[in-house]
């Protein structure tokens, strides 16, 4: 068996929102595969259907056509193999539950003993660095801490893929750097396969082992870029590397080209 097997396969995914005023094509044709243990960043110009792609991956939206396959079987709805971290942490955490209660909630219907469940919850809360806040309510915490709770909830669920939808778009730059390092750390220590959707080019290059650049609508994969930076990353040194700058410039170029591709008459198809 190869060390890295295909975990997620997306083939000719297409999503059209039908509405009375006319159909909107959110995703044109996307295909890619992802191996187990990979950290893939999806980046693209705003409004290119990143969130739609993510919801299709997570089984929250049915694709119009095409296929999303997880471990060889098609995704037809939300599955225990996936956990989503939403951008709006304030609306994704339940304010009437404590931090612990929020992390524990998705585990209730899993067939686990009380002790196993407790261990998972405690472990997840410790992994995101919030053991002191376990009994607080989410609204008593800062934005960055709330997003940590959402991440803890996702990893306690023990998914095969962690799907993150612009999770740090609403926090300040300092907190953002800390949370990026948390994602890197969780990925290296636990080998959690992660799809990380972002609009931030630097973030995608800093975090990812691979960056999928999406084109403007109708959305395709503009480029599938391997990030050949050393696995040990650090906010100061990694971002100062020449290779980092090159990659970031490259992704930036691709996105600019993707934007222009909209003007060019269907040249890419």
């Amino acid at each position: 068996m190869p060390e890295r097997s295909t975990l997620l396969r997306v083939e000719h995914l297409r999503k059209i929102y039908e509405s009375a005023t006319g159909d909107v094509e959110a995703i044109g044709d996307i295909s890619f595969t992802m191996n187990a243990g990979e950290l893939v960043c999806v980046v693209g110009p705003s409004g290119c259907g990143k969130t739609t792609l993510l919801k299709c991956l997570a089984g929250l939206l049915p694709p119009t056509s095409g296929l999303v396959e997880m471990d060889g079987s098609p995704v037809r709805g939300p599955s225990p193999a996936m956990a989503v971290v939403f951008q709006e942490y304030g609306r994704s955490l339940y304010p009437w539950l404590t931090v612990r209660g929020n992390v524990e909630l998705p585990l209730r219907h899993k067939k686990l003993s009380r002790a196993e469940r407790d261990t998972l919850v405690t472990d997840a809360i410790e992994a995101v660095g919030l053991p002191h806040a376990a009994r607080s309510h989410p609204w008593q915490l800062s934005g960055g801490m709330q997003q940590r709770v959402a991440i803890a909830r996702a990893i306690a669920y023990q998914p095969e893929v962690l799907i993150m939808d612009e999770p740090f778009a609403a926090v300040d730059a300092q907190t953002r750097a800390d949370l990026e390092d948390l994602v890197r750390e969780l990925h290296t220590t636990r080998r959690i396969s992660t799809v990380f959707v972002t609009h931030d080019i630097d973030e995608s290059v800093y975090l990812g082992e691979r960056v999928l650049v999406l084109s403007n609508s109708p959305t395709r994969v503009q480029e599938d870029l391997a990030i050949d930076l050393p696995p040990e990353r650090d906010q100061l040194t990694t971002r100062a590397l020449r290779r980092f700058t090159e990659l970031r410039t490259h992704v930036y170029d691709q996105i600019q080209r993707a934007k222009l591709g909209q003007v060019a008459p269907q040249s890419a198809r």
């Binding site: 929250l60 939300p78 599955s79 225990p80 956990a83 609306r91 994704s92 909630l105 998705p106 219907h109």
Partner: peptide
């Protein structure tokens, strides 16, 4: 978003 969260984690009907 809270409902979508419940969907994605497959929270049961009673929960």
């Amino acid at each position: 978003v809270m409902t979508e969260t419940a969907d994605s984690f497959q929270i049961t009907w009673w929960e």
